[in-house]
Write a protein that binds this DNA or RNA. Structure first.
Length: 315
DNA sequence: GCGTCCAGGTCTACC
DNA sequence: GGTAGACCTGGACGC
């Protein structure tokens, strides 16, 4: 791949590049196989059907942050393509988001007050590529994390693609086209997707059939985007919140246990049944910042556990 | 060793 | 409009 675009982004402080792209809980920015070393991220993104290599450097400090991004491609880039990719990366890094109102709200809340000090400057997740985010959501369903990781590994190994640039080789998620061309039986047996194979194929076909892109979804009112995502086969509220551009409160059985302890003082007896109740309580308590609280708390479980004297990492 | 349970949900069929 | 029951797979657990 050749260098086709090189630009800098200003960010609204405080902005921590490291906490944003390499989350303490281990979540990646675009692919689990990306590399983060010494304030530089080598990763990839699929845009308009083509895989791009990205080298992103976090420059300067928390309060005077800048980001330099280099884009690599096999194809040539014109000015319109450069503008589109710049805005895609800007949105996915959330460089223009002002988190100060969130931190002000946190001052008055005992659960969030210390968490925002631990993770000052972190931005919540915002997947750069819709289909990759949907693969993540589908493979998280009804599976312990190790099983989800097994599915990611097999999907990438057998159907993924390499971005080779800047002396690096980064393995990236399969394209919708590749998944649509693979039989459901093969996805079941080779990628061990089980019942999810049918859903993932249907999603790939919807995307190839003109489903809105992440950028188009982000321009919709968030509730409309959420409803649109739930039109996809196998995407319910949980998955729509994982993929969604506004950082939803995607409670599942695991996180319901954690927030059950934090918000009600005890582990729910039936976590699945507790999900809608906890979601309502969270929405009432944190309003538009609910998704931020979710990501901040789940990325700070060690310290939160220490403070409350209850091991939340055991779930 | 072997059987059972259930996990970082969603859809369908039935009432 | 509300809700059991089914769904892949594999690790944990009890016997």
């Amino acid at each position: 791949m050749n260098l086709v675009h090189d630009f800098e982004l200003k960010t609204v402080p405080p902005y921590s590049f490291e906490l944003t792209v390499a989350k303490p809980a281990g979540w990646w920015w675009a692919t689990p196989r990306e590399v983060y070393e010494g304030r530089t991220l080598w990763t990839g993104v699929r845009w308009e059907g083509r895989l791009l290599g990205l080298r992103i450097d976090g420059l300067r400090t928390l309060m005077r942050p800048r980001i330099r991004c280099r884009v690599y491609s096999r194809a040539r880039f014109d000015e319109a393509m450069k503008d589109a990719v710049t805005s895609l990366i800007r949105a996915a890094l959330r460089t223009e988001e002002d988190v100060r109102p969130f931190y002000e709200m946190a001052e008055g809340d005992p659960i969030v007050r210390e968490v925002v000090k631990d993770l000052r400057g972190m931005r919540i997740l915002r997947w750069p590529d819709l289909f990759s985010a949907l693969i993540l959501a589908i493979t998280l369903q009804m599976a312990p994390l190790v099983r989800s990781q097994q599915m990611w590994g097999l999907l990438m190994e057998h159907y993924g693609e390499n971005a080779v640039f800047d002396g690096r080789r980064i393995r990236y998620w399969p394209s919708p086209k590749k998944i649509s061309e693979t039989s459901e039986e093969e996805l079941r047996s080779v990628a061990k997707l089980g019942y999810r194979a049918k859903n993932l194929k249907a999603i790939a076909e919807s995307i190839l059939g003109g489903f809105p892109t992440m950028e188009e979804l982000s321009r919709m009112p968030s509730e409309d985007a959420r409803r649109k995502l739930m039109e996809l086969r196998g995407v319910g509220e949980y998955s729509a919140d994982i993929v969604g551009t506004e950082g939803g409160f995607s409670l599942d059985v695991w996180s319901a246990k954690i927030f059950g302890v934090l918000m009600t003082g005890k582990e729910p007896e039936d976590p699945r049944a507790a999900i809608p109740v906890l979601q309502r309580l969270a929405r009432e308590r944190w309003g538009r910042w609910t998704g931020h609280v979710f990501v901040y708390v789940l990325n700070d479980l060690d310290k939160v556990s220490e403070r409350i004297g209850f091991d939340l990492t055991k779930f």
